[in-house]
């Protein structure tokens, strides 16, 4: 599939960069004129993955989070959120609703569930001790193509 646009951004694993990552991904998809709903879906999912990289991947220690976003010709958005942190032992377990390794910090274990419900595809690659890549995919303008198909 042809690539329409692409960007990479590295930033330190700091809480303040959660909102920065949301702003950046919004700016990246904005030229497509996404619906407010689509924009909020993408922002929420990216926020979840970036927060996980900071609080779980690096456990609030210094590190770098990478955001790699690709926009394809058919308006599919793919975002990789990459950390070189602790990694995940059991990915299927981590994705289970309410599973958290940080209950004492008032985490609810719903981050992956939120990502899954707001994006079309969520995949996770991880190696304990090496890091984690969360890939988020969303076909934008879903409603437009939908109504065009019906017409």
């Amino acid at each position: 599939m042809k690539i329409k646009n692409e960007m990479r951004l590295d930033f330190p694993a700091a809480g303040k960069n959660e909102s920065f990552a949301r702003l950046v991904i919004s700016a990246f998809v904005l030229p497509l004129n996404p619906t407010l709903e689509e924009l909020a879906d993408v922002k929420t999912a990216v926020s979840e993955a970036v927060t996980n990289a900071i609080v779980h991947g690096y456990a609030d220690a210094p590190g770098t989070v990478r955001l790699h976003a690709v926009l394809y010709e058919d308006d599919t958005l793919k975002v990789d959120v990459i950390d070189n942190g602790r990694g995940i032992e059991d990915i299927a377990l981590a994705r289970t609703p309410f599973f958290t390794t940080c209950a004492e910090d008032e985490r609810s274990g719903m981050g992956f569930t939120v990502m899954e419900s707001f994006m079309d595809e969520v995949s996770v690659q991880s190696k304990p001790g090496r890091g984690t890549t969360v890939t988020l995919v969303k076909r934008l303008r879903a409603c437009e193509t939908e109504s065009a198909r019906r017409a």
């Binding site: 929420t44 927060t51 008032e106 985490r107 609810s108 719903m110």
Partner: peptide, 11 residues
């Protein structure tokens, strides 16, 4: 804007 962090706050 709100993400899952707010769930933990309320609970």
């Amino acid at each position: 804007f709100m993400d899952s962090s707010a769930i933990g706050l309320v609970i």
